[in-house]
Design a protein around this nucleic acid. Structure first.
Length: 603
RNA sequence: UGGGAGGUCGUCUAACGGUAGGACGGCGGACUCUGGAUCCGCUGGUGGAGGUUCGAGUCCUCCCCUCCCAGCCA
């Protein structure tokens, strides 16, 4: 299908704005106070409903709407039936705004788009929506791209304006998909809409609009543009322009127009255009077009088959459909995915703690685990499967199985899933991860190879006690340390320090065994066997077993009350020689233990 | 407030109108030591009220609650 690129550029509207579009100055920062905080009139509705007023009012409203109106004059703009769209070649996009880091909500939207494209051998594009110049940065854009790559969500075409796939060369005609560089395109379409009477210049100042809003709220009305400039005569318009009054372009929201959306996730949704929005701005006074306009244009030019995005944009679809329809573009289909919420059931944001993909990476989550978790948040394939490889996801994914209800982000479950992924990692991969992490934390000399027996041993010993890759730092630091004094002073070992506790008795045995060379120091390849034998001998000699044997031995040799198998710790200490300077070697531990015993004897 | 979308264990989710099931968490037990490992067990839910039906999470009506849009943000 070929899309319209033709622009009617000549016949009207002169140079009203052509000069403005050239430069995109930084608009002043606007602080937005949410409407909810401006509306404090909660009480009356409760009261009214109790006496049935609301119902009565709504009935009156309904009659007034239909009364004396020619039903046939009611227009309907409808998105194509879902079945029909599913026949089209798949072209989807992820369109983030570089106003911050990629968060998990965005990542999930990107994932769903990616899965849909890959499943149907379609095209997945990345478009940067940076029309808010004051909040968008190149750093954010770069971090966005890096995070998507880390997640393995590769795009076929994007802001770079290049493609590796020779079959997709035609995409290059779109130009780079970065909205701040596409002003000239949007400008043409504003001109077209103006010449055809779909948009009009509005000279109301921001202060004036704010005043109107406050007034409307005060009188209990829904704040909406009053249409002050809608019916200005050409003479009045020229006069204002001549006087240098700044102006925006507003879209004339039509009367009696029904917007019908066949949403793949939400089903059929219907709005009355006029009841939903006042005339909305498509181009700011500084010549920069706004989100709802750019999205519509770009989705059309990119020939997007299905817009897959978050539910927060559901109502925005009305404005976008109006723009598309006015320009004669075919409508895409839409799939509005439910939102990800924080624990308090509000939209996930920074105050909910870790929410950005970047944070999850640095905290030691694996991309596969994050992908798996996000896919299952609001989607399932009807089976009870919980673990999906990327290929399995691609195979099973279906937009029609997306959940309508929003989902609370549960970091506990993500941790659990990450742990499962980490533990099932092949040993070679695990060793690489471990040695990278440990070197970064200076727990391992940088020259040590990841295939070293030390990393292998660490991988094996800590396998079941890590959930995040960053846990290796903590685990190894613990294994390397010998905090005997601290543990004793904390009082948690009090029981072991009594006569029955056995700490002194077993410490004596250990020191003696170390001195006469019968102690398994971890040098031997067969260390585990030797260690078991040694434990057995000690058990026989001291007539202790179970926790009465292991607890005191653990304390004496590791200085801690818990940790991995003590024999394995001894082996790690031996293997660490010459590979790290952050550990307390066995010999030193014995010395510390000896002096501790001596001190205790004096008391 | 107007328009729109939602509501099944604490959380994520299943259930042609036919036994409310699984997973995370929590709790308990087992593993001749520890446990953030593993295995086993337990816990706990259809927002509310009516109605239709032999039978309702599912269909109907009303109510309640949550979220989204209502900006020269996206």
């Amino acid at each position: 299908m070929s899309l319209k690129f033709h622009i009617s550029n000549s016949n009207c509207c002169g140079n009203f704005y052509s000069d403005k579009i050239r430069s995109w100055p930084t608009p002043k920062g606007v602080t937005w106070s949410p409407l909810s905080s401006r509306f404090r009139v909660r009480g009356w509705r409760k009261f009214a409903s109790s006496v049935g007023v609301v119902r009565l009012l709504s009935l009156l409203h309904d009659t007034s709407q239909t009364e004396g109106r020619d039903q046939s004059s009611y227009n309907s703009i409808e998105t194509p039936p879902i079945q029909e769209v599913l026949q089209r070649p798949v072209r989807v996009r992820f369109a983030p705004s570089p106003t911050g880091q990629l968060h998990v909500g965005g990542a999930r939207t990107a994932l769903f788009n990616w899965l849909h494209a890959r499943k149907h051998s379609g095209i997945f594009m990345l478009r940067i929506e940076d029309t808010d110049l004051s909040r968008s940065t190149r750093e954010n854009e770069e971090s966005l791209l890096r995070d998507l790559r880390w997640l393995g969500l590769d795009w076929d075409y994007g802001p770079e304006g290049v493609t590796n796939n020779s079959n997709l060369e035609e995409l290059k005609k779109l130009g780079p998909l970065r909205q701040s560089e596409r002003g000239f395109i949007y400008k043409k379409y504003v001109e077209k809409l103006h010449s055809e009477g779909f948009v009009y210049p509005c000279f109301c100042s921001e202060e004036e609009l704010e005043r109107q809003r406050i007034e409307m709220e005060a009188s209990g009305q829904t704040p909406k543009y009053a249409g002050t400039c809608r019916h200005l005569t050409p003479t009045e318009i020229e006069k204002q322009i001549a006087a240098g009054v700044p102006y925006v372009f507003r879209f004339k929201v039509p009367k009696d127009t029904k917007i019908v959306l066949h949403d793949i996730v939400r089903g059929d949704v219907v709005w009355d255009a006029e009841a939903t929005f006042g005339d909305f701005i498509v181009m700011r006074s500084n010549g920069v077009p706004v989100y709802n306009f750019c999205v519509a244009i770009d989705d059309a030019l990119m020939e997007i088959s299905t817009v897959i995005r978050a539910e927060e944009h559901l109502t925005n679809t009305v404005r976008q459909i109006l723009v598309l329809h006015a320009l004669g573009f075919p409508l895409p289909s839409y799939a509005h995915c439910s939102l990800i919420l924080g624990e308090d059931r509000t939209k996930l944001s920074k105050r909910h703690g870790a929410t950005s993909v970047n944070q999850f990476r640095s905290e030691g989550y694996l991309p596969e685990a994050l992908i798996n978790y996000l896919a299952l948040l609001g989607w399932h394939d009807g089976t009870e499967q919980e673990f999906y490889s990327r290929e399995e996801l691609t195979k099973s994914f279906s937009l029609s199985r997306l959940s309508k209800a929003p989902a609370v982000f549960d970091i506990e479950k993500l941790r659990w899933m990450n742990a499962r992924y980490l533990r099932s990692l092949p040993i070679e991969k695990l060793r690489t991860v471990i040695s990278e992490r440990l070197k970064l934390a200076h727990l391992l000399y940088s020259h040590v190879d990841s295939s070293d027996s030390l990393t292998e041993m660490i991988a094996e010993v800590t396998r079941d006690s890590v959930e995040l890759t960053s846990d290796y730092e903590y685990q190894v630091t613990r294994i390397f340390s010998y905090p005997l004094e601290e543990t004793v002073q904390s009082g948690e070992a009090a029981e072991l320090l009594t006569k029955e506790g056995g700490f002194y008795e077993l410490s004596e045995v250990i020191v003696r065994s170390f001195k006469d060379g019968t102690f398994p120091c971890g040098e031997n390849e067969n260390h585990r066997v030797l260690w078991k034998e040694w434990i057995k001998c000690v058990s026989k000699e001291t007539k202790r077993k179970g926790k009465h044997l292991f607890h005191p031995v653990r304390l004496a040799l590791t200085g801690k009350m818990s940790g991995p198998d003590v024999g394995d710790v001894i082996r790690i200490l031996s293997l660490a020689k010459g590979k790290s300077d952050k550990f307390v070697p066995l010999e030193q531990r014995i010395r510390i233990l000896e002096s501790f015993l001596a001190r205790m004897q004096q008391l």
